[in-house]
Amino acid sequence: MPARRTDGGTKDVANGDPPERAAPPREAPLGLSLVATPIGNLGDLSPRALAVLGAVDAVLCEDTRVTGLMLQRYGVSATLVPLHDHNEAEMIPRVLARIEGGQRLALASDAGTPLVSDPGYRLVRAAIEAGVPVTAIPGPNAAVVALTLSGLPPHPFVFLGFLPPKDGPRAAAIARHRAAERAGLTATLVLHEAPHRLAETLAALAEGLGGDRPGAVARELTKRFEEVRRGTLAELAGHYATEPARGEICICVGPAPEEVTGEADLDAQLRAAMAGQSLRDAAAMVAAATGLPRKQVYARALELAAAQP
């Protein structure tokens, strides 16, 4: 199994370097530990996370260089093993064999909480199915930090990760979310985006969800040049069309406004809901979302279903 060792000295506090800390007790839970790591400022690594990363038999990580540099700045030595989208399937049996042999392992992302827009889900599912102990050491999460700073309703919220990079699939994903809103979903939307696609994604969101929807763009969170820009989707799209963004980016979009349901809109909501569930369940969902009598909505759903070819 490919691995590398890393160790080094602690740096002074500057540009996100961690502060001096007393050495934490070296302990690690049985099985697999999911360890959240800083999303920018290295001072955000918790003492418990540091203790676990320094005590496990190996740390599974996306990029050994990134995790290795972080651990070096804390003076921590660890065996690093790459686990990413391209090798996760083949690594799962090896990882489970190591844990079943008595080793204690940790999974860390390049930044933030493992599995959230990062590799590891398939490993965790396999570990659970194999009866392997799985625990989490919580910590930074860019999506949640962006949500709390956005000024938008914090709950409920829907996290979509990254939208498809190409225009057609991205528009389709936005349309599916809009259909869910028409069927009754009311939630703040949170997603990630790469800086070179930010302007076009904001434009697509404005077109698919409405340019007057409130939104926020959060970038470089926890770092020296942290910025949260708030405005309508149209305003944000216009700004970043002429002012390219840098760094890690989260986009937040406010919930859909309450709509007055006319006959045409009722039909649209029913068709959207019926596309993914039974007629009875679709009618119940749309009735709850619109406040219309369930019998009336169900009767209209039957008419729409009968009219389909």
Results as ranks from 00 to 15, higher is better:
Arg5His: 14
Asp7Gln: 14
Gly16Met: 05
Gly16Ala: 06
Ala28Pro: 10
Leu30Tyr: 12
Leu30Cys: 14
Leu32Asn: 09
Ser33Gly: 03
Leu34Val: 08
Asn41Cys: 08
Gly43Lys: 11
Leu45Ile: 12
Pro47Ser: 04
Ala49Leu: 03
Cys61Glu: 11
Glu62Ile: 04
Arg65Asp: 04
Arg73Pro: 04
Val76Lys: 03
Asn87Trp: 07
Ala89Asp: 13
Arg94Thr: 15
Val95Ala: 05
Gly101Thr: 06
Arg104Ser: 05
Val124Cys: 02
Arg125Tyr: 03
Ala127Ser: 06
Val132Tyr: 06
Thr135Ala: 14
Ala136Trp: 10
Gly139Met: 10
Pro140Leu: 02
Pro153Arg: 07
Phe162Trp: 06
Gly168Ala: 15
Ala172Phe: 09
Ile174Asn: 02
Arg182Ser: 10
Glu193Val: 07
Glu200His: 10
Glu200Arg: 13
Thr201Glu: 11
Leu202Gly: 01
Leu202Met: 07
Leu202His: 04
Leu202Val: 07
Leu202Trp: 05
Leu202Cys: 03
Ala203Thr: 15
Leu209Cys: 01
Gly210Ile: 06
Arg213Met: 01
Ala216Val: 12
Val217Thr: 07
Leu221Asn: 07
Glu226Cys: 06
Ala234Cys: 12
Glu243Pro: 13
Gly247Arg: 08
Glu248Val: 02
Cys250Asn: 08
Cys250Phe: 06
Pro255His: 05
Pro255Gly: 02
Ala264Asp: 12
Leu270Met: 07
Gln277Arg: 13
Ser278Leu: 08
Leu292Gly: 07
Leu292Gln: 14
Val297Lys: 04
Glu303Phe: 06
Leu304Asn: 04
Ala306Met: 10
Ala307Ile: 01
